[in-house]
C-alpha cells in the first residue's frame, strides 16, 4: 500500500510544482509504518477472536486443531443470549428515542436564544460527557439501589440516559445553528403556527442531524460498560456486561472460546445496528444546501 502513495525519496529542490509530497519521505515512511502496526494489531485482534470462537482447542499452534461452531450454541444457552440481546436492543432503542426527544428541543433553544444563565446550563450539559462515568455512576447507582430499582432494566435505561441526553444536545446544537433562522421567520410569515414551524419546516431539515445523533448514541449505549455494569443484574445485563462477567466470573472464568463466541456476536450486533442505521441516513445534506446559496 505504501508504495502506491509515498513519494519516492527526493531532495527538496527537486520537487516540481504540483508535486504531491506534503509529508517528506522519511516521516512519510514513519507514518505508514505506524499505520501498518496499528492495522496489524487491529486485524490480528479481530481475526484471532473469530478464529478462536470456531476452534475446539487452540494452544500452542498457529491454528486450532479442530473446528467447530458449537461454542455459539453453548454460549447462547449458557448465558441466555436471546434474552441478553433483547435487553441490549431494548435499552439502546429506548435510550435513543428518549434522549432525542428530550435533547432536541433543548438543543434548539441553546442554538437559537440567549438568556440569563445560558453558560451555566451549557456547562451542566457538558459535564456528564466529560467527567468519568464512574464519578457520577457510583452515586447514581447507589441511589438506584436505594430507590429499589437496582438490577432492573429501567435502571439500566435511566443511567444510560445521563450521558446520552447531553450528547444529543452537543451534536444537535451545531446542526441547528446551521439552519438559517430566516427560514423559520419565513414560515411564520406564511401563517405557520409555532407547532407547524416545528413539524413542517424544522423537523425535515433536522432529520440528518437527528439521525447522526441517534447513531452515535446507539453505538455509545450498546458499548457502554461502566454505567450499565454498576446497576445491572442477571435479568438486565446488556451484551457487553455479560461478556465481562463471563471473562471475570469468580472461581475460574468460562472457557475462552465461549467468550470469544460472545464477543463475535457483540461485534456482529454492533455492525448490523450500524449498517441498518446508516441505511437511513440520507447522504444529501439538506442543511448544507441552505448555506451554499450561489451568490451570482
Amino acid at each position: 500500500m505504501a508504495t502506491t502513495v509515498a513519494a519516492p525519496r527526493r531532495r527538496k529542490q527537486n520537487l516540481v510544482p504540483g508535486d504531491k509530497a506534503i509529508v517528506a519521505s522519511p516521516s512519510a515512511w514513519f507514518v505508514w509504518f505506524g499505520m501498518a502496526a496499528f492495522l496489524i494489531l487491529l486485524i490480528g485482534i479481530l481475526s484471532t477472536v473469530v478464529v478462536d470462537s470456531f476452534g475446539r482447542q487452540w494452544f500452542a499452534n498457529w491454528l486450532p486443531q479442530e473446528w467447530t461452531a458449537s461454542w455459539y450454541g453453548q454460549g447462547w444457552e449458557r448465558f441466555d443470549l436471546g434474552h441478553v440481546i433483547t435487553v441490549t436492543v431494548l435499552v439502546a432503542v429506548v435510550v435513543v428515542v428518549v434522549s432525542v426527544l428530550i435533547g432536541t428541543p433543548a438543543a434548539y433553544l441553546l442554538a437559537r436564544k440567549n438568556f440569563p444563565g445560558k453558560k451555566a446550563i451549557n456547562l451542566l450539559f457538558l459535564l456528564p460527557v466529560i467527567i468519568p462515568p464512574i464519578t457520577f455512576g457510583i452515586p447514581l447507582a447507589t441511589l438506584m439501589y436505594s430507590w429499589g430499582l437496582g438490577r432492573t432494566v429501567l435502571a439500566v435505561i435511566l443511567v444510560n440516559l445521563v450521558p446520552s441526553v447531553p450528547f444529543v444536545i452537543l451534536t444537535m446544537t451545531p446542526f441547528i445553528e446551521q439552519i438559517n433562522p430566516a427560514i423559520e421567520s419565513a414560515a411564520k410569515m406564511c401563517g405557520a403556527s409555532i407547532l407547524k414551524v416545528f413539524t413542517k419546516v424544522l423537523a425535515p431539515l433536522l432529520v440528518p442531524g437527528i439521525l447522526a445523533a441517534a447513531i452515535l448514541v446507539l453505538v455509545r449505549t450498546v458499548g457502554m460498560f461502566e454505567l450499565t455494569f454498576l446497576v445491572s443484574g442477571p435479568q438486565s445485563d446488556t451484551l457487553v456486561v455479560s461478556i465481562y462477567r463471563a471473562m471475570t466470573s469468580a472461581g475460574g472464568s468460562e472457557a475462552r472460546q465461549l467468550v470469544s463466541a460472545m464477543a463475535v456476536l457483540y461485534t456482529g450486533t454492533m455492525l448490523v445496528i450500524l449498517i441498518a442505521a446508516l441505511r437511513f441516513v440520507n447522504p444529501t445534506q439538506l442543511v448544507a444546501r441552505v448555506r451554499d446559496n450561489p451568490d451570482d
Partner: peptide, 14 residues
C-alpha cells in the same frame, strides 16, 4: 396576514 421577502430568500430547502 402580511407577506415577507427575505434578504437571504429563506426558501425551505427541502
Amino acid at each position: 396576514g402580511f407577506g415577507m421577502v427575505f434578504q437571504s430568500y429563506a426558501l425551505f430547502p427541502h
